[in-house]
Every structure is written in C-alpha cells, then in structure tokens.
C-alpha cells in the first residue's frame, strides 16, 4: 500500500481526523473553525517561516503565551510534526522545548501540520531520523503521537480523551517542510 494511504488508514483507525489542504490558508481556516477558544503556538522553525502566528491572528484567533499558568487555559495547541510513520498512523514531534510539551498535553484539541512528503514506512524506518534527532539534541524528549488520548481502564470500554487531547487533527500540506528533523 502506498505510504500516504497506509498512514491515513492507520491514523483514522486510531481516531485522528485527517484534513487535506491545498494551501496553508485552508489549514488556517480549518483551525479557526474548530479551535473553540484560545490557542497555544509554540516556537517552530516551519511555523515561523510562513508567519503562521500572523495568519492565525488574521483569522481571528487569539494566542496565549505558552507558559505553565496560561497553557491550562487554552483550548487548542497548534504544532508542526517532524515526520510521520505510515504503518501505525503516528506523528513524531521533537518535544524537547517545554512549550511544545505544554501545547500538546494540556489543551483539549491538537492541530498538527504535516508535509505529505514526510512519511516513513514503519517504526524501524523511523529509527534513522530518530537517531539523528538524538545527535542533534543530546538531551531530548521525542513524542510519538497516534490518535487522541485514550483509556479502556473502566470495563475495557474504549473512551477517548482522558488526560491528553480529546481531538487530534492532522492537516496535510505540500511545500511545508522537507526536513525530517524540522518541527
């Protein structure tokens, strides 16, 4: 199966929502429609490059400073992803900077911008970029995220959104970033 198709099937099976975007403006509009409150936008090379903050603000969204106190008040986090893993529908986020972790753990919704070209086949194929991330950042916190937060701890009934985000949106873009290590 083509890796994009495989990624879509696996990510949707895990409860993520995939959104096809031709241009960044569609992604911005989608976020504006779904955010339902203030945003957290942690520092990111790729987001900065396209001045995402300005575009989101232009769409009427408010961004809170990504601090411990404020992060808990936000409705959604917006981040990029370094790359994705096709067979399990997983996003890989370099999360060493604390603001990335706050923005992806506390709010109810998480929007992730992903370049369609950055999909590797499986967990073993992910090791090569993972190792390079370790070399680039000797102290690190790297997150594999597959679908929203879930639990089956009460009577084994699958329930979405226990401690982490309840909704995970993957916004697929072209020409966003080619570098597997870039967030």
């Amino acid at each position: 199966m083509e890796s994009m198709t495989q990624f879509r099937v696996a990510a949707e099976a895990a409860g993520a929502v995939l959104v096809e975007c031709q241009h960044l403006v569609e992604a911005v509009t989608f976020i504006a429609e779904r955010a339902a409150g203030d945003l957290l936008l942690p520092g990111s090379v790729s987001c900065h490059r396209v001045r995402l903050a300005e575009q989101l603000r232009g769409a009427g969204l408010n961004m809170l400073p990504v601090t411990r106190d404020q992060a808990a008040e936000a409705a959604a986090g917006v981040t990029s992803a370094c790359f994705a893993i096709a067979d399990t529908g997983t996003l890989v986020l370099e999360s060493t900077a604390e603001d990335v972790r706050l923005a992806t753990t506390l709010p109810t919704r998480h929007f992730v911008l992903l370049d369609r070209r950055k999909i590797v086949a499986d967990g073993l194929a992910a090791v090569e970029p993972l190792r390079r991330m370790h070399q680039q950042n000797p102290r690190n916190y790297i997150a594999y995220i597959t679908g929203p937060s879930r639990t089956a701890d009460i009577e084994r009934v699958l329930t979405i959104g226990v401690h982490g985000p309840k909704e995970l949106y993957i916004l697929l873009l072209d020409d966003w970033s080619e570098d597997l290590l870039e967030m």
Partner: peptide, 26 residues
C-alpha cells in the same frame, strides 16, 4: 512494534515517549 499489539491488540499506543537526560523545564 510488538508490545502494544500483544498487550491489548492495539497497533500502537497513543503515545510513545522517548526521554533522554535533563531537558528544559520551567
């Protein structure tokens, strides 16, 4: 690759978290 599949029949858990060393905080 094997652990979540064999534990609960999940392809992968929602999160796999790799932590190395003392990272930034506060």
């Amino acid at each position: 690759r094997v652990l979540p599949k064999n534990a609960t029949g999940q392809a992968l858990t929602s999160y796999v978290t790799w932590i190395r060393g003392a990272i930034p905080g506060g």
